[in-house]
Design a protein around this nucleic acid. Structure first.
Lengths: 356, 356
DNA sequence: CAGTCTGTGTAGATTGATCTACACCAATCC
DNA sequence: GGATTGGTGTAGATCAATCTACACAGACTG
């Protein structure tokens, strides 16, 4: 059935000799090109099978395509990204394209290196999740190879983008919290540099939406944007500090589920519960649905985004030139981590306990 | 600073022309080969920088190395695997090697395809996490390219292995549960085919250790091995069935943390707590430490395993021929999901509630 | 001063595929 | 019956690097 990998490496030359035809003939057969008789096709196929021949991707890359698409991903430890991968993998599953992943080495800022590594390997297309790389650099890149960016709100004539409607998503969270009666809502988001450049990054959009929502609710003076790296341990530390403040917020809206988990952890550390401090995240990672966590969050439909990105990339590879910019509508998922705030004041605790 | 990717693609030829030297000279400079004067080196380096030249990995692959190592990973959705990746990435960070990941498409059984895809791409070495691929196939593979397997207990003269001491790890869990006083301990593990072949797979070792430990404790008649796919939702469903049985176990030992999360979910679904059913996992994924989960588990030291695998691979690439087989000692991490069982009988519930 | 190193650079074969241009053969057309 | 056409197959250039063999200089040796 599946042929074993042959010892050494068998080349197209070997197959040609075995089948008694020319190299070109073999090449035609494997590419399904025009000008092959059924008889020759059969002979060649048999020789390929017999020798366990596999075309060298490197050699192919020298002239034609490598049938490889690359995806650049930051921090795989965040479960949201595997969702994108699952979607992309599914979309490519039927195609002749193999997906390879290049993890962005956190030491070497923002994926330039990983993306470059993919391009160096002659991939036929690139999907990248790097909200902060320079648009000009990307345009130059996209001039050479099809590129689909995930999570960039800027528009380009050269590369495609798949993006969640972060404005809408963040506003859904804020509406939910405000409707519950919260007024002291803090927003936890990565370091300023991270949300600074332009307004391309999802986090930046979410910060703006948070600010706007607070402003519109007449809570402009209570706007509190707290900066923290994205990891759960880091945000846990930051949140502990926040909860220790005398005027601690009654709700924390984190820009991602991972830091939201850290906040939940801090809430528990401080001996508090969701009745004291509501927590909302963003991404809807799998664990958020677990009863021990039960995190209110926004489902970005990561699989769908990954699938869409792969589909757009295949279209690009097939020749489409007009840029596309797909917006996926997110969805609020309300769980137990958000509740109405306790009324303020001394006797409040008792009344609230009875009310809820 | 970092040169932009040039339009089109600049070849070694272009650099040679710019620097006024031969192709071979440029090649020598980039490879740091013998026979280059400092003066020429400087001129070439300048030309490379100016043109933003990047060597084509495909062309390199035709003769020499690709400076790429591949890692094959099943289901990235299981957070244990990103741990391995983090370790491997760290170990390769200083080296000239770029890591690329090939996800094993679950549709196309057991990573053959993904590993083959990596080899087709001329990687200089392969790390793979595929406990079930045929040893013969692997030996043939390893004859052509350095291979390090993670999580295989079989020994090979051709490929290296990094493996956790699953026997010891599983026994630590069992000792812990038995010491707590549990006697009805069930073991949740993937489908039989999955643990069947030889005793190479970690899951198989753990099953055996579970059986042995029960036997030695005189509980041979209470051995209960329950089969379930690895995903949390699937194991949740299976666990729900198990918990509904009249003689439900007082403790469940799952072969991985992911299914353990599913069991915890089921325990909550059934309106039970850790006081009713203890749950232990295996892997120590990050969320296990979260207070909402607090799962007793075994730390396999995934990062260390990933790092070790990458180091062994680099040694192999550098020329080592003798096989190595590294065993990493796991560590029990006790958390709140395991507790002493309630004493049996009608009034037990009350007594237990007072005692704990 | 011829012969031998040693250090530096180059020419050109090589790698495994793709792809254009063309050759060959039979059948068909006028 | 010679010219055309269509279907098959091949020759050979090409892609961008590596790497062996060698050429050439100047320095050193006997």
């Amino acid at each position: 059935m599946a042929s074993r990998p042959s010892a050494g490496s068998v080349t197209i030359e070997d197959v040609a000799r075995e089948a008694g035809v020319s190299r070109a003939a073999v090449s035609k057969v494997i590419r399904n090109a025009y000008g092959v008789s059924p008889a020759m096709k059969a002979r060649v196929a048999e020789a390929i099978e017999k020798l366990g021949y596999r075309p060298s991707v490197s050699a192919r890359g020298m002239r034609g395509a490598t049938f490889t698409v690359g995806i650049e991903i930051p921090e795989l430890s965040n479960p949201f990204f595997p969702k994108l991968l699952a979607g992309a993998t599914a979309a490519l599953s039927g195609s002749p394209y193999q997906l390879i992943i290049a993890p962005a080495d956190p030491e070497h800022g923002e994926g330039y290196r990983a993306i470059q590594a993919l391009v160096d390997r002659q991939v036929d297309g690139v999907i990248a999740v790097s909200p902060l790389v320079d648009p000009e650099w990307l345009e130059a890149l996209a001039a050479n190879v099809p590129v689909v960016m995930i999570g960039r709100h800027d528009r380009s004539a050269k590369y495609d983008a798949v993006v969640s409607d972060d404005e809408v998503g963040a506003r859904m969270v804020m509406r939910h919290l405000l409707d519950l009666g919260h007024r002291d809502i803090a927003h936890l988001t990565p370091a300023a540099g991270f949300t600074g450049i332009g307004s391309g990054a999802p986090q930046a959009i979410r910060v703006d939406a948070y600010r706007d929502a607070m402003q519109e609710a007449g809570l402009g003076d209570r706007i509190r944007v707290v900066r923290s790296p994205n990891g759960a341990p880091e945000s846990r530390r930051v949140a502990l500090g926040l909860l220790a403040e005398p005027d601690r917020p009654t709700a924390v809206f984190a820009s991602h589920d991972e830091p939201a988990l850290g906040v939940l952890h801090a809430v528990a550390d401080a001996g508090l519960t969701a009745a004291d401090v509501s927590v909302a995240g963003y991404d809807d990672i799998e664990i958020a649905a677990h009863p021990g966590i039960s995190l209110t969050t926004v489902d970005q439909h990561g699989e769908r985004m990954g699938r869409l990105a792969a589909e757009l990339l295949l279209e690009r590879i097939a020749g489409r030139a007009e840029p596309r910019h797909e917006v996926v509508r997110p969805e609020l998922v309300v769980r137990a981590s958000t509740r109405p705030p306790r009324p303020r004041g001394g006797a409040a605790r008792l009344r609230a306990a009875g009310g809820t």
